[in-house]
Design a protein around this nucleic acid. Structure first.
Length: 342
DNA sequence: CACATGAA
DNA sequence: TTCATGTGG
């Protein structure tokens, strides 16, 4: 789930996607694909599939959103997770349990004909399979959009790329990127701005927002090391339970008062069961790799149609229409592709 | 989530 | 143009 820094962060600025024109962004691929997979579903919560039963929800979302970003002059690079740190085992186990519980509730809801609940629980039980990740990478290749394989956490790699200036920002719904040191984080990078609130027939406007690490640290009066300690008190993927009874506000007060975990005497006992030095290392010296040169090429129309339409039964009309829109917005052929894509 | 369509 | 609704695969 990521660390719950939301309530503490006031320095967030709403932006329009157009403001990212000409900028490259490193997108947490797992985060994006999972959201597509969870939310792009039929009436009873079933995912979109091709005629062979392979799930395609994530491909639909990835395709249209990526083309939209390119159309607006944004250069995306997708960053895929590698091997998770050992300390993530508990979190991974929790997620599996939650998915299984949701799947049971999904089946119950279906049985009693409660489609709305079925849809909710279907989303919660969604699981991103290896073949779905492979398909996503193949689609990106056909689109001429680069992707990077992280050695470990995708968010860490994306943060590294942003910190090094390889990309302008990292993109994720989670705040972990900030702990990993991403100087700029973009959340809610969506095109259509309306989202339905769960359990209510109410729609809220969801606008992309920009968060700068230096502003967050400045406003909170913390160093990044302290922000990581704060995260550990709240709970991270590497200590999902955090400290009992400590949420964002109390955690912040502790860090402001005591400076670092070692100095919080009243939590010494609780903290003794957390390997917080290892967690600090994961965030402050994460396992990352040099990503290699990032290159954006024009989409290979034939490859896109072959993959989406021939292999996965997408509508050729829709697929080509989306490609046409990108071409219409693309620079004149005479202009170097570098101007837009490089 | 994003697209297509028809109504306002 | 905006908005609500149904569908995509």
């Amino acid at each position: 789930m990521g660390v719950d820094l939301g309530p503490l962060i006031k320095s967030r600025r709403q932006i329009r996607v157009e403001e990212l024109h000409g900028k490259s962004v490193a997108i947490d691929a797992y985060n994006a694909l999972y959201q597509f997979l969870a939310v792009i579903r039929g009436e009873a919560g079933e995912p979109l599939t091709d005629s062979k039963g392979r799930v395609t929800s994530h491909l639909s979302g990835l395709y249209y959103r990526t083309l939209n970003l390119l159309e607006k002059g944004v250069k995306p690079v997708y960053v895929f997770d590698g091997k998770p740190p050992e300390l993530k085992a508990q979190e991974i186990e929790n997620r599996i349990r939650q998915r299984e519980s949701a799947r049971a509730k999904y089946e119950e809801a279906l049985k009693r004909g409660d489609l709305e609940s079925a849809r909710t629980y279907a989303a919660l039980s969604a699981r991103l399979r290896d073949y779905m990740v492979e398909d996503a990478k193949r689609l990106l290749e056909a689109l001429g959009v680069p992707w990077v394989q992280a050695p470990s956490e995708g968010e860490a790699e994306a943060a590294y790329m942003a910190a090094k200036g390889y990309v302008w920002a990292s993109v994720s719904q989670d705040y972990d990127s900030l702990l990993f040191g991403s100087p700029v984080l973009v959340r809610n990078l969506t095109i259509s701005g309306r989202r339905k609130l769960p359990r209510k027939d109410v729609y809220v406007e969801v606008v992309p927002e920009l968060i700068r690490l230096d502003e967050v640290l400045g406003e909170l009066g913390l160093t990044r090391e302290q922000l990581v300690d704060l995260g550990i008190l709240i709970g991270t993927d590497f200590n999902p339970d955090g400290i009992r009874g400590v949420g964002p506000v109390k955690a912040y007060n502790y860090i402001k008062k005591y400076g670092r975990l070692e100095n919080i005497a009243e939590l010494a006992s609780e903290l003794s069961s957390i390997d917080y030095n290892a967690i600090r290392t994961i965030f402050l010296s994460p396992s990352v790799a040099e990503p290699g040169p990032l290159e954006w090429r024009p989409p290979d129309e034939g490859a896109v149609v072959e993959f989406l339409c021939r292999e996965h039964d997408f509508s050729e009309e829709r697929v080509l229409n989306a490609l046409r829109r990108l071409k219409a917005s693309a620079p004149a052929r005479t202009e170097t592709l570098d101007r837009w894509f490089g």
